[in-house]
Simulated assay, not measured.
Amino acid sequence: MTGRGHVEPGGQPLVEQLSPELTMIKMSVGPMDNNAYVLQPRTGAPVLIDAANDADRLVAAAGDPPPGTIVTTHRHHDHWQALADLTARWSPQLYAGSPDLEAIQQGAGVRDVTGVWDADEIPIGDERLEILGLVGHTPGSIVIIYRGDVTHLFTGDGLFPGGVGKTGSAADFTSLIEDVEHKIFNVFEDDTVIHPGHGDDTTVGRERPHLDEWRSRGW
C-alpha cells in the first residue's frame, strides 16, 4: 500500500502545488531510493533539495530556467552523488548545514558551499525558505521549511514516517530525538507536511503521538 507523496524508483515525478507561489516536483533517484525535490517559484529560478543521483533525470524534471540553488540536507554520500555534475551544468548557489559543510565539499568535490543553520533563510522567488538544524543523524543535518497554504518540512534523513533517522550511538539518538521534539513537534501544527529524504510523506499530526514510543525503543 502506498502512502502520501509516493514516488517509484526511476518512475514519473510527482507534481504538487504547495501554494499559489510554489510548485513541488518530487522524484526518486539512484539505487537507494533517494527523494529529490525541485521547488519551482512562480517567478525566478527553482531550488533543488538534494542532488542525490540521476543528474539527467533531475535536469529534465527541473526544466527551464534551471535551479539557481541546490541545498544538501546532510553529508551522507547518497544525498550528493549528482551535486558536482549539476553544479558544473548550472553554476548554482550551494547550501548545506554548517557542521556538515567541509565533509560535503570534500566528498562531492565542490567548492563555495554556504553554511546555514537555525533561523537562516534561503531566497526562492519572492519568498524565503527557512532552515533549522537537527543534530544526531549527522552533526549538520538540516530541515528546509516552506510556509505555504500549510507548512512543509523537507527533513532529509532526520525524520521519517515512523521515526527519526538512523544514529550511531545512544548520545546521537538522544540529541536527534530531542531536536525533533523541541524544534518540530513542539513548534509546528498537526497539518504540517513532512517530506523525508527517502520514502513517502507524512504529517506532524500523524507522527507526534508516537514520540514516546520512539524514545522508549531507542531508534
Score class of each variant (00 low, 15 high):
residue 73 T to S: 11
residue 75 R to N: 06
residue 76 H to Q: 05
residue 76 H to G: 00
residue 77 H to I: 15
residue 78 D to N: 13
residue 78 D to P: 09
residue 78 D to E: 13
residue 80 W to D: 02
residue 81 Q to G: 00
residue 83 L to E: 06
residue 83 L to T: 13
residue 84 A to S: 15
residue 86 L to K: 13
residue 87 T to P: 00
residue 89 R to S: 06
residue 89 R to N: 07
residue 92 P to H: 04
residue 92 P to V: 04
residue 93 Q to W: 10
residue 94 L to C: 06
residue 94 L to A: 08
residue 94 L to D: 03
residue 95 Y to V: 05
residue 97 G to S: 12
residue 98 S to N: 07
residue 100 D to S: 11
residue 101 L to R: 10
residue 101 L to A: 03
residue 102 E to M: 09
residue 102 E to L: 13
residue 104 I to S: 04
residue 105 Q to P: 06
residue 107 G to C: 14
residue 107 G to M: 14
residue 108 A to N: 06
residue 108 A to M: 10
residue 108 A to S: 12
residue 109 G to S: 11
residue 112 D to E: 13
residue 113 V to C: 02
residue 115 G to T: 11
residue 115 G to H: 06
residue 117 W to P: 00
residue 118 D to H: 14
residue 119 A to T: 09
residue 121 E to G: 03
residue 123 P to W: 11
residue 123 P to N: 09
residue 126 D to G: 08
residue 127 E to G: 07
residue 128 R to F: 07
residue 129 L to N: 02
residue 130 E to T: 05
residue 130 E to C: 10
residue 132 L to W: 01
residue 132 L to V: 04
residue 133 G to W: 00
residue 135 V to I: 08
residue 136 G to V: 07
residue 137 H to N: 14
residue 138 T to S: 08
residue 138 T to M: 04
residue 141 S to T: 09
residue 142 I to R: 00
residue 142 I to F: 10
residue 143 V to F: 08
residue 143 V to I: 15
residue 144 I to C: 11
residue 145 I to A: 07
residue 148 G to E: 02
residue 150 V to W: 05
residue 150 V to D: 01
residue 152 H to A: 04
residue 152 H to C: 07
residue 153 L to V: 11
residue 154 F to I: 15
residue 155 T to H: 04
residue 156 G to S: 07
residue 156 G to L: 08
residue 156 G to Q: 10
residue 156 G to A: 10
residue 159 L to Y: 05
residue 159 L to Q: 01
residue 160 F to P: 06
residue 160 F to T: 05
residue 161 P to C: 11
residue 163 G to N: 06
residue 164 V to Y: 01
residue 165 G to R: 12
residue 166 K to C: 04
residue 167 T to W: 00
residue 169 S to F: 00
residue 171 A to Q: 08
residue 172 D to P: 03
residue 173 F to Q: 13
residue 174 T to G: 12
residue 175 S to D: 14
residue 175 S to W: 00
residue 176 L to R: 06
residue 177 I to R: 05
residue 178 E to H: 01
residue 178 E to T: 14
residue 178 E to Q: 04
residue 180 V to E: 02
residue 180 V to C: 05
residue 181 E to V: 04
residue 182 H to I: 00
residue 183 K to L: 03
residue 184 I to T: 03
residue 186 N to F: 08
residue 187 V to S: 09
residue 188 F to A: 04
residue 190 D to C: 02
residue 190 D to W: 08
residue 190 D to N: 12
residue 191 D to R: 15
residue 192 T to G: 10
residue 192 T to R: 13
residue 193 V to F: 01
residue 194 I to H: 01
residue 194 I to L: 15
residue 194 I to Y: 00
residue 195 H to N: 08
residue 196 P to H: 08
residue 197 G to V: 15
residue 200 D to P: 10
residue 201 D to E: 13
